[in-house]
Computed example of a mutant assay.
Amino acid sequence: MRQPVMERTSGPGLELTHHLNPWDRATFQGNTASITTVSMTGTDGAAQTFAAFRDWCLENRVLLVDCRLRHDQLAECALLQGLGFRFIELAYRPAVTDLARFPPDPELTISPATEADRPIVSAIVAGSFQTGRLHADPQVGPELGTRRYVAWADNAFSTPGQSVLACGLNGKTISFMTLAERGPTRRQWNLTALPPEFQGQGLAKRMWKAILHYHHQEGVEEVTTAVSSLNTKSFNVLAAIGFRFPAPEINMHWCPFGPLNQADRV
């Protein structure tokens, strides 16, 4: 998977760093972009400086821009809202340590996913995801959101530094976890889901504890993840098993060519 190329737009009152997202091009059939940092140095000229970024988006045919701000960047949030960005969610990045306290689950198996699990994982993703920033944004919608999640999970099978774990119950794969390695003793959880028929039975909590035990056996000392304020079920389970939550980030969207779910974009 190609790595993004960081670019900078700066001028009176405003400085942005941003990049195109090559991993999204096939899903969106066009470019998306991320603003990684926003710094206001004053109010005079900020809108004019942003116009240069808008031109960059138009030149690159960027269909969707996402931007994450620190929770206390309220001036930047107000500026971007005035320029067409929409508030979508608060994004949390909790972490857990002391993995030795998590015992194995005698009924659940955790193991590296195989190629035979690949279509199972895709089917679970396609039928399970209902929350997330793309699903919540009425200018994007759940169809694109689900397609992006399916592609993300599928790419994890072949992307260097990423991997997929399968969770089995009674000899059947019922769930999964995609991971990113952050050094020999750290893992980042990315995507996971339970099919609707397994929800509401406490299996998510048991599965995540079993995965943490698996990580401890690997020598992992810390696990991090990301969770949306829209996903209250996952939020509560993570808190219940000991994840600690720092201050959130503000997540915003902007569609330079208008809503992605309309057929007559400019």
Rank of each mutant, 00 (worst) to 15 (best):
G82Q: 00
L83M: 06
L83F: 02
L83G: 02
L83E: 01
G84T: 00
G84F: 00
G84V: 01
G84L: 00
F85V: 01
F85W: 01
I88A: 03
I88W: 04
I88F: 04
E89V: 02
E89D: 15
E89I: 04
E89C: 06
E89Y: 03
A91P: 06
A91F: 05
A91E: 15
A91N: 14
A91D: 14
A91M: 12
Y92D: 02
Y92W: 07
Y92S: 04
Y92K: 07
R93M: 12
R93I: 13
R93S: 15
R93D: 15
P94T: 09
A95N: 10
A95S: 14
A95Y: 07
V96S: 01
V96W: 02
D98L: 05
D98E: 11
A100Y: 04
A100C: 04
A100S: 09
A100Q: 13
A100D: 09
R101Q: 12
R101M: 07
R101N: 03
F102Y: 11
F102W: 08
F102N: 03
P103D: 06
P104R: 09
P104N: 06
D105H: 02
D105M: 08
D105P: 02
D105Y: 06
D105E: 13
E107I: 07
L108P: 03
L108M: 11
L108D: 08
L108W: 08
I110C: 09
I110D: 07
I110R: 01
P112S: 08
P112A: 14
T114W: 08
T114F: 05
E115R: 08
E115K: 05
A116T: 13
A116P: 05
D117M: 07
D117Q: 06
R118Y: 04
P119Y: 10
I120P: 03
V121I: 15
V121R: 11
V121A: 15
S122R: 13
S122L: 09
A123Q: 15
I124Q: 07
I124Y: 04
I124R: 02
V125R: 00
V125Y: 06
A126W: 07
G127W: 01
